[in-house]
Write a protein that binds this DNA or RNA. Structure first.
Lengths: 220, 220
DNA sequence: TTTAAATAGATAAAATTATATCAATATTTT
DNA sequence: AAAATATTGATATAATTTTATCTATTTAAA
């Protein structure tokens, strides 16, 4: 079936909300697997994760894996299917710009291995940090970033620098050949080149939802 | 209504995607204001932020502020309107559980002031950290957390502990009277009590979108 | 072997979110 | 003072996402 050329929607062939939920299932399934579970039903997943059963079933449909009526899905097969669907079965090398507190936290985060994300180097302008290791990852001068990206064909850039440097660093990354930027800086960055993927990770946006909900609760 | 408090209650009077975009406008407007801008149009905002003009207009409508045809919105009034709508005009004290790398980064993040978020204390089980200050914020033993919450009537809890402790810490927070939990732990937590707001901040979900987009680009 | 129950998959409907269009209006230009 | 224009607010439409329902299938129990 050729559902490749559906519409000119930004996300071809997948729903972003569903993709955001898949890691939640993945994390849950790892625990089920560790506990010795062989099969799992969408009903069980939904019950344990406080979700609606139909939604779980719909989401898992994206991975292409088929389940068995009355039984459910095979846990290891489902884990693998999610990983393949998300591209987590491949190793994705990434560089990080801005080795401050947040950059530090990301450099030390062990969970990334599970997603195939491997931060290979960090870049900063602070001479105290340059030349040292942070959580085993080398920190180089920000001036070498472009050269590094070009020489290593790195495709993912993680931006954890202060807001005022974000766009400039993004431009440098894109210029050097970066394909996707995961932006933690509290600034909206844009790409001139087409097909550059920019994923904004905004604490402010997340807190806004929380803050608004608290406020609405008070007022009701 | 009875079926209201099983699932996360529906968002009355606001759209979550719109609420997530408001801080983006806010950050942009601060810069416009600093640059001396008095009025701003949705057309201009959309152009600068790479968004669609109608969406910007629709989003700003939520704040209740009226603009002027041919002119736009008054910058300071719009900033204020967004802050009031999101509840950022009030001071929101919060406690943080888990003073690891990420907790450290959040404790030191100056931007929170802008959102009215004030982390007043951190809690950890590491004796090396207990009794010390991190970025000027006191770190107490995790055993004192519940007492602290009760005595200070703290409403917001930030969870930056490892996944395996997340649910237990959440239970303790909720038990002590916390109204909203901002969860950074890579684990789905649930609340028994109704009307507890849980905001999941998942690196995995965010990276999944990035990873899926990279993968889809390669395959096209 | 037959029947009942649980569950996946398919289809449909509802709700939410995004985008398009148009009339009214304030400002600028002629 | 009139005309042109940019922009808002309102209304309408489209797309996406969520939720509901129905049917077929597999397993387990009678």
């Amino acid at each position: 079936m050729d559902n490749e050329n559906l519409q000119e929607s930004s996300n071809k062939g997948f729903s972003e909300p569903a993709v955001r939920r898949l890691p939640v299932y993945h994390h849950y399934l790892v625990k089920v697997h560790e506990a010795g579970g062989i099969f799992i039903s969408s009903t069980q997943i939904a019950a344990d994760l406080n979700l609606v059963q139909v939604q779980v079933r719909k989401d898992l449909e994206f991975t292409g894996l088929e389940g068995k009526p009355k039984i459910g899905y095979e846990v290891t097969a489902l884990l693998k299917a999610i990983e393949v669907f998300l591209g987590w079965d491949k190793i994705n090398p990434a560089i990080l710009a801005g080795a401050g507190h947040l950059g530090n936290a990301l450099l030390g985060y062990q969970g990334f291995k599970e997603y195939g994300l491997n931060i290979v180097a960090a870049f900063d302008s602070d001479f105290v940090k340059i030349g040292k290791l942070i959580h085993g990852k080398p920190v180089y001068s920000i001036d070498f970033m472009e050269k590094y990206i070009q020489e290593h064909n790195t495709e993912i850039g993680i931006l954890t620098a202060p807001a005022q440097y974000a766009q400039d660093l993004a431009d440098k990354m894109i210029n050097a050949g970066i394909k996707a930027i995961w932006n933690f800086a509290p600034a909206r960055i844009t790409a001139d080149k087409p097909d550059i993927i920019i994923q904004h990770e905004s604490l402010a946006s997340s807190f806004a939802v929380l803050s608004k909900k608290i406020n609405s609760n008070i007022n009701k």
